[in-house]
Simulated scan of single mutants.
Amino acid sequence: MSEQTGPGGFAQRIGAQVEDADDGGARIAFEVREEHLNPAGTLHGGVLATLVDTAMGQAVRTTTGEGEVPATSQLTVTYLRPGSPGPLVVTGRVRTRGKHLTVCEADVEQDGEAVAHAVATFALLHR
């Protein structure tokens, strides 16, 4: 992908932008704003969960064929440090692609530091 595009759905509504998605990988840019913060003044964990899920889903979509729809069946997010207002980048990648299940990983970085790491399993629905 040469241009930034929205990922669609909820992630797009909160401002996520797909910078690249190709060959089992995806990169999402996100600007953390005041409305994304929790009462402690740091990036809400639910926003991070949405971003890693979206990045991994975009990565899986680069490997699917006609009629295959990825659906998150398991998601584990490890929060490494608090996120703060400003830009961050989420990188998702397919680790193992099976006929019915795909395993992915994602990393979130802000200011050159790791903010979160995630692992997810996606079921491939056939429609």
Rank of each mutant, 00 (worst) to 15 (best):
G57P: 09
Q110F: 04
A55M: 09
Q12A: 15
T96H: 13
T62A: 00
L51M: 01
A114N: 13
F10I: 15
H126D: 15
P82W: 05
H100G: 13
G15P: 03
K99C: 00
Q110L: 06
N38L: 06
V94M: 12
K99N: 11
F122Y: 14
R95H: 06
D53G: 14
T102D: 04
G8A: 07
H117C: 08
A49C: 09
Q110T: 08
R97M: 11
V32E: 03
T5D: 00
R27Y: 00
V89P: 05
L88V: 09
L48K: 07
S84C: 08
S2K: 10
T102N: 03
T63M: 15
T91F: 03
L101Y: 12
A11E: 01
H36P: 04
L75Y: 02
M56D: 08
L37K: 12
Q74Y: 13
E113K: 14
V77R: 03
L101E: 12
T102C: 12
T5W: 06
S84N: 12
S84F: 09
L124D: 02
D107I: 07
G6S: 07
V108C: 12
V18S: 00
G112K: 04
G65H: 06
I14C: 02
H44D: 08
G45E: 10
R33Y: 04
G112M: 11
C104G: 00
V90Y: 11
A120M: 08
G46P: 10
Q110C: 02
A29C: 02
L75Q: 01
G65R: 11
T78W: 05
Q17D: 04
L80K: 12
G9P: 09
T42L: 12
A106P: 05
G6Y: 05
F10H: 11
E34H: 14
D111Q: 14
M56N: 11
E19Q: 12
E68M: 10
T62L: 02
A118F: 11
D111H: 09
E109N: 00
F30H: 07
P82E: 13
V119I: 06
G6F: 02
L51F: 04
V119C: 01
Q12G: 09
Q12M: 10
E66R: 15
L125I: 14
V119K: 00
L75W: 03
A21H: 03
T78S: 14
R61M: 14
G8Y: 06
D20W: 11
L101P: 06
T121S: 14
E19T: 10
A114S: 15
I14P: 01
V52N: 05
T64F: 01
M56L: 01
T72V: 14
L124P: 08
T42E: 10
T91G: 03
P7C: 06
V119D: 00
G15L: 00
